[in-house]
Design a protein around this nucleic acid. Structure first.
Lengths: 333, 333
DNA sequence: CTGAAAGCGCTTACAG
DNA sequence: CTGAAAGCGCTTACAG
């Protein structure tokens, strides 16, 4: 049988109340009594039952995390940042995905009602913003990671998308590229609009209007197909700025097949800095998103909120930075 | 205020016992009573408090998952398989990593003592086998994923490593490669020994003794350095079989820098089939490990065990399969 | 400084 | 078929 607080109390010759007090360092306790109780706790290897504590206290020292998918290239980084932070604060992490329609959304919300966790970290699965807003309104602390531009009613942390677009543009301008192709993600995402705006503005400052902007879908196939199509149509450009690395990789493939040299004929810059970006040929220049730091920051905000502190009212924006590789700079690493 | 079972009982004009019975479809209940109670449950949006249920029942409908790292290339696949299966069975998943020394191991084991979850899925962090064995001995159901050859005292699911090695060898033999270099992982891993044994045996069947076997460390840098060193020393080989894709990618880099053609001069085959394998130049042939299926299978075994069924006594081994790409077959996809 | 008792929100013999 | 009561293992006023 598991050892309970009653066992400890009996063995130490005190009441459960007193054991609870030394456990939670609450109220004044005689130093010798406390020492004796602690000794018994160690000897018996007593650990309070988390469900009982949670039930009595009305909280669980557990945070939930909801993600659309676990197999996205940068998801592991975010998760690692979250788990490290949450574990360091001695909380548990309950992981949810709801990528199988209404049924799984329902399952998730019922976990919320079941009070399985005290707060939620979320990378927004599509079409769940209303649900999340409702949960937040009903009192669940929520922090959004990687806001894709919906400006929710709750705290969020994101990356400097506009700056990233600007950095990519400046880099290409410095390389003398005056006719860039932009491969965007879905325009309904705020991050996409921001990346494009930053890129455009930087070029505009040099008197260049960015004309070649193609909507794509964040997939490798999409990037490949779009670039293939443009080349076949005789379109000319000396650079590609893709709104994520997957599309950039697709572009790389299309350019290679067409016999164009990268970066000689066309320089390519992606966005994200996923692991595969280092392994393409040539390795891909890209705008690095600090995914792990975003996970850590979001977790810290949520934990602070659970501890009673105020959450930031404005979105927290973490800096992006350009990583130069051979797809734009021939003699880089 | 949250709605509790008492609220439902009151509104339905029955006892909490009866509400509990319809909730758990336990015992005989009058059909009209049951219908009335259900109607009230829906109307009030009642969901049982998971901590209270867990405390009363002594179980939590939650499984734990312990991993060494969340950023390994194939970790997302395993996790996705696990989460899908666990969620479908209406259980929660509590995620732990213990990659920060003794302190984090301790934190983890205390979660076990706190009865935070009913069973554990684990990809073994180094030097935790003793701890895991102890937990299992003390009654915690444990299923190991990707056993690296320790043959633990508890159920495990792995991949057909020996077959994978054999498949790689047969492929290279069919391509006429008679002097392969094997880049192994750490020999203390059973999977490494199995992959090597399968590879050797297949070559032996063709009268060829595999002589060039280099111990490496599963890192890209390790693969790169080893191949560089061998080439500089004038070593000759017409194929590389790397025990993971990261080392294969390193080998690809070393071969390219030396001016050797892949696969013309040297064919390269990796192991794992990580996402980046499709994006190297040339794309990497590799032995695919069914990571998602391994996660699903392990989760299914654990859930069955929690439901009272027997767990398999022998390790469950899932098939691997060779994926041919251009690093070994010039005109493949 | 310490303890008896009530309460957190459920489930489960036990009795009818 | 149904309910009163005890129990799961804690915490927390309240009283001393």
């Amino acid at each position: 049988m598991r050892v309970t607080i009653a066992d400890v109390a009996r063995a130490a010759g005190v009441s459960k109340t007193t054991v609870s007090r030394v456990l939670n360092t609450r109220g004044e306790i005689d130093a010798t009594t406390a020492a004796r109780v602690r000794e018994v706790i160690d000897r018996l290897g007593y650990v309070p039952n988390s469900k009982a504590v949670g039930l009595a206290r009305g909280s669980s020292r557990t945070v939930g995390m909801l993600v659309p998918s676990l197999t996205w290239p940068w998801m592991g980084e975010v998760l690692q940042g979250v788990v490290d932070t949450v574990e360091a604060a001695d909380h548990g992490l309950l992981l949810f995905t709801c990528n199988r329609g209404a049924e799984s959304v329902e399952r998730f919300t019922s976990q919320v009602s079941a009070r399985a966790f005290d707060g939620l970290l979320v990378i927004e699965p599509e079409n769940t913003l209303d649900m999340l807003t409702a949960l937040h309104r009903d009192g669940l602390p929520v922090v959004l990671i990687d806001d894709r531009g919906h400006h929710p009613a709750f705290p969020s942390v994101g990356a400097a998308n506009r700056d990233g677009g600007t950095a990519a543009a400046r880099h290409l301008i410095a390389l003398g590229r005056r006719r860039p192709l932009v491969l965007t993600g879905p325009q309904r995402f705020g991050c996409v609009r921001d990346r494009l705006a930053g890129f455009r503005a930087a070029y505009a400052r040099h008197g260049i209007a960015v004309e070649l902007v193609e909507d794509a879908d964040f997939t490798e196939r999409g990037g490949y197909g779009t670039v293939r199509g443009l080349l076949a149509a005789g379109e000319e450009f000396d650079a590609v700025f893709a709104h994520n690395d997957l599309m950039a990789i697709g572009a790389l493939g299309a350019l290679r097949e067409t016999g164009l040299d990268v970066p000689g004929d066309v320089a390519v810059v992606g966005f994200d800095d996923i692991p595969a970006a280092r392994h393409t040929e040539p390795p891909l220049s890209t705008v690095h998103q600090p995914m792990r730091a975003m996970g850590e920051t979001a977790a810290r905000i949520l934990l602070a909120r659970l501890a009673g502190e105020d959450a930031p009212t404005a979105p927290v924006v973490l800096p992006t930075r350009l990583i130069e590789r051979r797809s734009s700079v021939p003699d880089s690493s």
